[in-house]
Amino acid sequence: EDYYQILGVPRNASQKEIKKAYYQLAKKYHPDTNKDDPKAKEKFSQLAEAYEVLSDEVKRKQYDA
């Protein structure tokens, strides 16, 4: 799945936009606030993985290549 789609940001998003999108979605899908939703944990880990790659310039360049 596309990391940009997961975070809901365009491919040319700035680091600030990526961070903002991640924090909004992380708050929304955090397992502690969605105890009754088994998919929230999965969504949250996808968000974390996408953010880890896109927030790191080197990893992001490799991902975009």
Rank of each mutant, 00 (worst) to 15 (best):
A48F: 14
I6S: 04
Y51F: 13
A48C: 10
A13Q: 01
D64M: 02
K41S: 12
V58I: 13
K43M: 11
D64W: 02
A26W: 13
G8Y: 03
Y22P: 00
Y3P: 03
E57D: 09
T33H: 12
Q62C: 09
A50S: 03
V58P: 03
K28P: 04
L47F: 06
P31S: 11
H30F: 11
K20S: 13
G8Q: 10
Y22R: 01
Y29F: 13
K59S: 06
Y3N: 02
A48E: 14
D56S: 04
Q24H: 14
I18F: 02
Y51C: 03
P38W: 08
Q24P: 06
K35E: 08
E49S: 09
R11L: 04
T33P: 08
Q24F: 13
V53L: 04
E17S: 08
N12Q: 09
A26C: 10
I6A: 05
A40H: 08
K59D: 02
K43R: 11
A21K: 08
Y51N: 02
P38D: 10
Y51R: 02
S45C: 10
Q46Y: 09
L47W: 04
P10D: 12
V53S: 03
E17R: 08
A13F: 02
R11I: 06
Q62S: 06
Y22G: 01
V58R: 07
K39R: 14
D37Y: 08
S45R: 11
N12I: 06
S45P: 04
E1F: 15
E49P: 03
K35G: 10
Y22L: 02
A21C: 05
D2Q: 04
A13P: 01
K19E: 15
Y29K: 04
Q5H: 14
L47C: 06
E1R: 11
V9F: 00
S55A: 07
E49D: 08
E52M: 11
A26V: 13
D37E: 05
D56E: 02
G8C: 06
E49C: 07
A13I: 02
N12F: 07
Q15I: 13
N12D: 13
T33E: 12
K41L: 14
N12G: 05
E1Q: 13
K28C: 10
A48L: 14
G8R: 07
N34I: 14
V9D: 00
Y3V: 02
Y29C: 06
Y63K: 03
S14F: 03
K39T: 13
D32T: 11
A21Y: 03
K61D: 10
G8H: 10
S14V: 04
K59R: 13
E1I: 14
L25S: 06
S14K: 06
K27V: 15
Y23Q: 15
P31K: 10
Y23P: 03
A21G: 04
D64I: 02
P10R: 09
A26N: 05
P38M: 11
N34Q: 08
I18L: 07
K27F: 08
E57P: 15
P10K: 13
E57A: 08
V53N: 04
E17T: 12
A21F: 04
E42G: 07
E42C: 10
Q62T: 05
D64F: 01
S45K: 13
S55C: 05
D2Y: 04
P31V: 07
E42V: 11
E1T: 13
Y22E: 01
D36M: 10
Q15M: 12
Y3M: 03
K39M: 12
K35R: 11
E42M: 11
I6R: 09
V58K: 09
D56Y: 02
Y63M: 03
K20E: 15
D37K: 05
A65G: 10
F44E: 04
P10L: 08
D37P: 05
F44A: 09
Q15S: 11
D36K: 10
K20G: 09
D36R: 09
A13T: 05
E52F: 07
Y63S: 02
L54A: 01
Y51V: 03
E1K: 09
D37L: 05
Y51K: 02
H30A: 09
